[in-house]
């Protein structure tokens, strides 16, 4: 594998440090923007989660080497991602418990 050659690894060490510093900067940014009001609280949550997603992508792509991984692992992750989204939506069913204002309107 080309990416595992000593030269490539020496190169990527610099990248790791840059990404680490970038993550720290993004952390500071998350804290800073949490004190700024973006019109509504939902917007604040969205901005905060967006930055968290960027950070998570950096960790995933660079530290966890997902920028050059084998196909099989992407398949696992897509499956996990789909199920994760489903989990996030599960609580919608709690609306079924409220008489008169549930999903089906009865």
């Amino acid at each position: 594998m080309a990416s595992d050659s000593p030269e490539a690894i020496r190169k990527s060490i610099k990248l790791y440090i840059i990404i680490g510093a970038g993550l720290l900067v993004l952390t500071a940014l998350t804290v800073a923007v949490s004190y700024v009001h973006f019109g509504s609280h939902s917007m604040n949550v969205a901005v905060g989660l967006l930055i968290a997603c960027i950070k998570a992508s950096l960790v995933g792509a660079i530290f966890m080497h997902l920028n050059h991984e084998k196909r099989l692992i992407y398949i696992f992750l897509v499956l996990a991602g789909v199920l994760f989204v489903a989990l996030m939506g599960l609580f919608i069913f709690s609306l079924l418990d409220i008489p008169g204002q549930n999903l089906f309107g009865y």
């Binding site: 998350t30 804290v31 989660l49 968290a52 950070k55 960790v59």
Partner: peptide, 10 residues
């Protein structure tokens, strides 16, 4: 990375 903003900031 997700826990920090969700529990501490938002």
């Amino acid at each position: 990375i997700f826990l920090f903003p969700v529990l501490y900031l938002l």
